[in-house]
Amino acid sequence: MTISIRSVEKKFGRYPALNSVDLEIADGELVALLGPSGSGKTTLLRTIAGLEFPDAGQVLFEGQDVTFASAAARRVGFVFQQYALFKHMTVARNIAFGLDVRKGRDKPSKAEIKTRVEDLLKLVELEGLGGRYPSQLSGGQRQRVALSRALAVQPSVLLLDEPFGALDATVRKSLRKELRRVHDATGVTTIFVTHDQEEALELADRVAILNAGRIEQIGTPHEVHDHPATPFVCGFVGEANRFEGTVSGGRFTAGPVVLPAPGAADGPAIAFVRPHDLVLDAAGFAAKVDRVVIQGPLANVDARLPDGRRIEVCAARDDAASFTGEVTLSARRTHVFAA
């Protein structure tokens, strides 16, 4: 199912939640909508779902205009942030709900529904728990029930709102892999909302980064990380040291910091340097090491520039010993944007 979002706008009162958003999603893609809270990502997801209608613009499914079609008519599977499982129904009844509500010829037989529920429980590795109530399940298990309930209607598109937000770190990691596996097994076009960049970069085929109701950039995890289109993306995706200064003749200067800025126009600018792009270099700028923290194979270095500003460096663990006292650094790669 291909999905096209065209110039979609949505206001809540006077507050604009979506500001002329365009987005094309290919069949079978797994796309993350990434952004800080209030960036409009959940509103965009709900607009795609048919849980919100836009004030302007169009939503197309497979080229068909569904802008004002109901969620049911669009055949979306939606996983809610707090799962929204029906508390008084068993897991099996929860999963079967979307099939139970069908009428007449569309309604599968009881045996078919039972088989479908069993298959879905197997898919999310919850076999034998069909008779439990949601309150008797762990957070991760509830999440899986919500996922299989959304899949039960054989949706044309699967939409998930902060699917891992309410889970602890370990469960979150394993469920990420689970979602990827389920997506690959079913091939259903999937869109999920998250504020966790690590989650988006690890899981998605493409990531759309939203800020203040606009899409700042859409691309593969690699593209948005290594070729950020805007200062916001650069600061939001991945760690980055941020400097405000000026560009002159292909060099960026901010106090003691001098960075290469090939091709950047002269004038005031903002530069970002990823911690792992900073290397020891005798010809570089000076910094004083405050602290070195070893994290697995990496050494995270907190350093201070002569003017007192802090700077973060990420090096290989084996090089940790080189980071003591006064060091000189230079950047292998910078991202410079006109201010």
Binding site: A49, G50, A72, V76, F78, A84, V101, R102, R149, V153
Partner: peptide, 9 residues
């Protein structure tokens, strides 16, 4: 929960 129910038809 109501939204979930309605979204499933």
């Amino acid at each position: 929960e109501e939204e979930a129910a309605v979204s499933m038809g």
